[in-house]
Design a binder for these strands. Structure first.
Lengths: 134, 134
DNA sequence: ACTTTACTACGAAACTATTCGTAGTACAGA
DNA sequence: TCTGTACTACGAATAGTTTCGTAGTAAAGT
């Protein structure tokens, strides 16, 4: 349910819904970066399939159905991250983080942001848990 | 060339090659976690396809050909990370890192490791120079 | 009422990934 | 040489994704 792995095309549509909230097919279609390359009915079909998969839910009260993401960005991101860690990083989330840090042109602003989260996590470690330093 | 996006099955095979170095088909097959579920010729076929895609190269001097990864783990990881950032994180690597940090049960050890990399990157920001100290 | 417009539903084609079976071949051992 | 083994090559079946065309329908305009 929450642990589905959307395909690329599905992800593209989910991104629109996450960003814009509930939309008609038309709105989704127009919001796609390459909407002139995709047929309208392609998007419709995709949304229908996603609906049966439980990735989106729809409100049929209007003539033009309203589609809405049924999975949150966070859930999906975590799943995909977990999958990637598994497949390409030999199971090590840490390795993924290190690689991501290296490969981006990070601004100081962003580095600071990460550092703050790091601090927060370290606190939680110290308060809550048994820590073993060997 | 460097920017191919391996499929799941391909990634599984690449992982073996990254870990073990050059291998025969047999060796790859046996190294797969679920090798009893995959046919030998399935792996062979996959390796042949990957060869035409440039993901692996092979040495045909032996009767049993030797396959070797033609892309590095790092390159591939970066590509896949970039792809994921694009698709699922609205282009923000930072958001990916934050999410990854949150979703893992991180040890203090690992947090420290990340912090060190962070320090190093901040230094580079400050003096603008590239210096590798390690 | 009739026509046009804006939608949905759905079948089917095109493509890709993954699977394995069968056929062919080099080589080792009898 | 003959036979069995261990390998490669490759076609073809299956399954999933993505595409869109065509048909049907409700609603709005005339």
């Amino acid at each position: 349910m929450t642990d589905r792995k959307p395909t690329d095309a599905e992800l593209e549509i989910l991104s629109v819904l996450w960003k814009s909230g509930p939309c008609t097919v038309k709105q989704v279609h127009q919001a796609l970066p390459d909407h002139h390359l995709r047929g309208y009915t392609t998007v419709l079909k995709l949304l229908q399939i996603m609906s049966t998969k439980g990735l989106v839910k729809r409100d049929e009260h209007q003539r033009a159905h309203i589609y809405e993401a049924a999975v949150t960005a966070e859930q999906t991101q975590r799943n995909m991250l977990a999958h990637l860690v598994d497949r390409a990083f030999a199971g090590s989330t840490n390795r993924l983080i290190m690689q991501a840090l290296k490969s981006q042109g990070t601004t100081e602003e962003e580095l600071k942001e990460i550092r703050q989260l790091l601090d927060k996590m370290e606190h939680e470690h110290n308060d809550g848990a048994t820590h073993n330093h060997d």
